[in-house]
Design a protein around this nucleic acid. Structure first.
Lengths: 207, 207
DNA sequence: ATGGTTCTGTACTGAATTGTCAAATACGGC
DNA sequence: GCCGTATTTGACAATTCAGTACAGAACCAT
């Protein structure tokens, strides 16, 4: 028995995420968020507790999408595991694959990992942001490691390799391409880097 | 016949770099720079043309250090090339090796690449920053590629591997560890990632 | 010593930003 | 149809910020 919300919470957070992506955290004012989301200042403070709250909840939403999308893309039968890994690596470079059917890359701004960008800017002085960002890393690394294990079971990756170490390395490479992309390199160059990484994966001894 | 400068230009730019590293570009005010460098606003504007000018010149100074340090650490006889690459990879993870004798790592803030941090924050909307950051990338990648070629000549790396592709991948990995470091991971974890990367380098076919 | 030139520090202005508040509004239950 | 409640809106004050201007200080050459 009261006035209901006139906005969709997830939609607002997604718009805020876009804004934070393009202008950074310290580079966006509350008015920017207000303009991007269509919400007034009052509503922003009442619902999300200001700029910082919007960021935390936007990151939480990103994490939720990631935690659902990454396993969905990487999980599956052992036979196709290596190929799934290959596809993930290539697509991740042009935008974190959140689902199998989601198109890969609009532009570079949306291609980089939101958590990585925020962690790089303010993670060192904001423990909550750092923790949320690391959660995003972990959920992806775990899904990748599981896929590596599947590929090992299928005989496509050297069984002596530590799947967790390999997963950390692969996700590190993907994050590295975010940085290289920020340098202005072309998507083709980033693809080439991802292919090089894939080519170096340790194969079984012989046969 | 006039009053000389009372400050050392490089020293000031280095202090500004530290400030930008810790609070980001948009997170630092001119007063912050003034406090960090000891220079008054007037001098800052007269000498560096304000905040943006300070950033550009600080990045130029970083680039200069990089352009001198990276080749110095990586260049040398073919015999030790692989080991130099190994050492560079391990040390780069804890701070860009600017010279052979410079100690590796104070803390994480100074360990990450200054150019990478600035490019990630404002590179997309600041072509000058993006270009300067990419110059930093290029000068390191070139030195790494040269070292890879040396290792190939010495029979330590598969001669069929493209040294430029390999160099891009290696530098991408190093930049990736900057991001993972921003997530809060321990130096030991970053070292482990670097070791994994080194272990995957393509060795010659056999013998 | 002295004058001219450059540097240094501070005060100032206009704009931007943050967080809060109160009045207006819209909806659901009765 | 009416009322209570939560949302929305816009405005407000206090602070911060960037960039400029100006006056004083320091130095070197003569």
């Amino acid at each position: 028995m009261a006035r209901p919300r006139s906005f969709d919470r997830d939609h607002v957070l997604h718009a805020a995420e876009r804004q934070f992506r393009t202008t950074g955290y310290n580079g966006t004012s509350v008015d920017d968020i207000s303009a991007a989301t269509g919400l007034g200042r009052g509503s922003l403070y009442a619902t999300f507790d200001g700029k910082h709250g919007v960021l935390l909840q936007a990151m939480a939403g990103y994490f939720a999408r990631l935690g659902q999308g990454a396993p969905q893309v990487l999980a599956g039968p052992d036979e196709g595991a290596l190929e799934r890994l290959h596809g993930y690596l290539l697509r991740a470079v042009h935008g974190v694959p959140l689902a199998a059917d989601v198109p890969p890359a609009p532009d570079r701004t949306t291609a980089t990992c939101f958590a990585a960008k925020m962690a790089m800017e303010i993670g060192a002085s904001d423990p909550e942001v750092q923790r949320l960002a690391n959660d995003c890393f972990s959920v992806v690394a775990t899904a990748v490691a599981e896929c590596v294990r599947a590929a090992q079971r299928n005989g496509d990756i050297d069984p002596d390799a530590d799947p967790d170490d390999l997963a950390y390395l692969l996700v590190t490479i993907i994050r590295g391409t975010d940085v290289v992309g920020a340098y202005g390199h072309s998507p083709a160059r980033l693809t080439s880097i991802a292919e090089s990484a894939f080519a170096l994966l340790p194969r079984p001894r012989h046969r």
